[in-house]
Design a binder for these strands. Structure first.
Length: 642
RNA sequence: GCCGAUGUAGCUCAGCUGGCCAGAGCAGCUGAUUUGUAAUCAGCUGGUCGGGGGUUCGAAUCCCUCCAUCGGCUCCA
């Protein structure tokens, strides 16, 4: 007998050589029915494989990420099998599962594979999956593997890099593929499948290599789940910030101005300003000081900072002054400027931490194919700040920045987030700048700060920047998509390069530590995420226009304007819809434009100095005096920001 | 930058396999209507069919090229 430890710590005994299926069945029949794979001592494997020694195990189902990965990986095999039936000469390369489905990169060798092929591949896929294929694992020698794939340079390359003795093939139906596995017990659990799209992808992601055709697909255990998935995609399309931004007249692009350079329309600019004011106020409370620096900087500045060397090719190229021939760059980063502000006079340890904040607009040359709405642009504004502090202050400063980020998330209702702690790759210390002691201090400061703030974290080794470790916030929006927002990074490189110093209590010069942080990241990207998170239905405090006053006919326009003016004096963003349209039409337009409040004013209201309040999506909520309404809406805003 | 798709009025879209003056709805303008909680009525304006080149008696429709957008690849200080 062997001892099997379950995830909850329970230990059960099974006969030596039990299969994963038998172990699952021992836990419950229901689990055995939905089991997809088993993890044995950290290794995921097929359910039909046997367990020979004591082990701790987990059973994976469709509800686990690992289970989905196995499910989709097997689906990729079946899709490849289907495709090969129609394109026998196609060369397979790799076909992994991804976050939403799977893909297979295929060299069609000059033949074209188009959207017209999707339907027949899907049909064949379902026939094959229904036929109940099993995935049989076979160990093969390297020599054999190379022989089988002698006509496929991609697989040959993969095999070359594998260790002899660790190479496995998987046989399913008439299909065989070089594959590490594992796979589902039987293809018949895959009940629904759709090819989503095709796209070009370089072999091994290197643009010097041949471009392959990447076929994206997704599959599910139930047709209903596929339908729901497609519906979610529809919903995402409806929330697309490019579409909503156009509908709500927030921003636009112009070919004449240039691709990737957003133009903020009045309503978008209003929204953006509100966000800026909001964050400025929060930052002031936390002891930040605003600074302003120019949009261009001498190329030497970026040579000093190291950005020219490392990112010069991703910047707009320097502009030369006509007389002196000096080179200036559109600034790709604010930090060098801020370093110079720090260095503008001698600094004492007493004035640290020094927190310099700027809504700094930067310009970066993104490749044309990279541009995407507001999320990937060539000119954008960072909610940047640099904290210059003593090494022993790093942890406290981190905690304060975390507080700011969490407050923003709370106010904007990003309720589902994790913090990613990015540390050094311990195997490659030479990749990083700064001495070991500094790294250990900074990494521990981040880990402790996150722990003390009770953050849900994941730790990634090797994801740190070369100049320091960082903490990034990933949020899930209202429809479950992940976005990376705020970032906090420790930097040892810049203070050195700029030779920044402060005089310590010992009257000796010391080097400060620098923390880069941007809770929004960039305003452009943040607004895009916010649009998609809220579907354009912004919270009252943030929405570009809060109130529209609707006069019942010409006679009451004067009163309507008076009401709107008094609201504006009270700091409420209000306007009047005095078009010669019916009230019904104006209400409809306001509802469509996501106007939170509509004030209908006619004879009754004009006489009594009141307004009839209609709240978006709710309808008529009764009559109030002007002052009552002002108090009411202020209270609503306060509740949101509390 | 690369692969693929798309590009018709301000917006959303129709215009099939090349052939009468290129259409609709919304928006805009003009006029009438002066409205009580999600679309009042009528009329009008508006398009080098992304730009350029070519094939053809004839091109929005076919071909080439450039530009932009979309989906990916790569990268992201």
């Amino acid at each position: 007998m062997i001892k099997i430890t379950l995830p909850d710590g329970a230990v059960r005994e099974y006969p030596k050589g039990s299969t994963g299926t038998q172990i699952a069945a021992g836990i419950s029949e229901g689990l055995a029915r939905v089991a997809i794979a088993i993890e044995v001592n950290g290794q995921t494997q097929e359910l039909y494989r046997t367990v020979e020694t004591d082990a701790s195990i987990r059973i994976f189902t469709w509800n686990d990420t690992e289970g989905k990965n196995v499910f989709w990986h097997s689906s990729a095999h079946i899709m490849a099998e289907s495709i090969l039936e129609f394109y026998p000469d196609a060369l397979l390369t790799i076909g992994p599962p991804i976050e939403n489905g799977f893909y297979y990169d295929i060299d069609f060798q000059g033949k074209s594979f188009t959207q017209e092929d999707f339907a027949k591949i899907e049909k064949r896929f379902l026939e094959l999956s229904k036929s109940g294929e099993t995935f049989e694992r076979k160990d093969v020698t390297k020599a054999h593997a190379l022989e089988v794939y002698k006509d496929n340079p991609y697989k040959t390359e993969l095999i070359e890099n594998l260790e002899d003795g660790s190479i496995t093939f998987y046989y399913s139906g008439n299909f065989v593929d070089l594959c590490r596995g594992p796979h589902v017990p039987n293809s018949n659990i895959i009940k629904a499948m759709k090819i989503m799209s095709i796209a070009g992808a370089y072999w091994r992601g290197n643009e010097k290599n041949k471009m392959l055709t990447r076929v994206y697909g997704i599959s599910f255990p139930k047709q209903k789940e596929l339908d729901e998935h497609l519906q979610r995609l529809e919903e995402a399309k409806k929330r697309d910030h490019r579409k909503v931004g156009k509908e709500l007249e927030l921003f636009t692009f112009s070919e004449k101005v240039g691709m990737g350079l957003p133009l903020w329309l009045p309503k978008g600019a209003r929204l953006r300003e509100t966000l800026v004011e909001f964050l400025k106020k929060v930052q002031e409370a936390y002891g930040y000081q605003q600074v302003v620096t120019p949009h261009i900087g001498n190329k030497k500045l970026y040579e000093t900072s190291g950005h020219w060397e490392k990112y010069g090719k991703d910047s707009f190229q320097p502009i030369e002054t006509p007389e002196e021939g000096e080179l200036f760059m559109l600034k790709p980063m604010n930090c060098p400027h801020h370093c110079e502000i720090y260095a503008s006079r001698p600094r004492s340890y007493r004035e640290l931490p020094l927190r310099l904040a700027e809504f700094g607009t930067v310009y970066r040359y993104e490749q044309s194919g990279e541009l995407h709405g507001l999320t990937r642009v060539r000119g954008f504004t960072q909610d940047d700040a640099h904290i210059f502090c003593r090494p022993d202050q790093v942890k406290d400063e981190f905690k304060k920045v975390i507080d700011i980020v969490l407050y923003i998330f709370k106010v904007l209702k990003f309720e589902d987030y994790v913090a990613q702690i990015s540390l050094r790759d311990p195997e490659k210390p030479e990749k990083y700048f700064g001495n070991n002691e500094q790294w250990v201090t900074a990494e521990n400061a981040i880990i402790e700060a996150a722990a003390e703030k009770g953050l849900k974290t994941v730790t990634e080794l090797g994801e740190a920047a070369f100049y320091g470790p960082k903490l990034d916030f990933m949020v899930r929006d209202a429809i479950g998509r992940k976005w990376q927002l705020g970032t906090i990074q420790v930097d040892y490189q810049l203070p050195n390069r700029f030779e920044l110093e402060y005089t310590g209590p010992d009257n000796q010069p010391h080097r400060p530590v620098m923390i880069h942080r941007a809770p929004f990241g960039s305003l452009e990207r943040f607004v895009a995420v916010l649009i998609e998170h809220t579907a354009g239905d912004f919270p009252l405090w943030l929405t570009p226009e809060q109130v529209t006053v609707l006069p019942l006919g010409e006679k009451f326009e004067e009163y309507a304007h008076k009401v709107a003016a008094s609201l504006r004096v009270a700091g409420i963003r209000a306007g009047v819809d005095d078009r010669g349209e019916t009230v019904g039409k104006k209400i409809r337009d306001a509802e469509v434009a996501k106007m939170p409040f509509m004030l209908i004013v006619g004879e009754k209201e004009a006489e009594s100095g009141s307004v009839s309040v209609r709240r978006r999506k709710e309808g008529d909520i009764g009559t109030m005096t002007n002052d009552e309404f002002i108090a009411f809406i202020r209270n609503e805003v306060e509740k949101e920001l509390a």
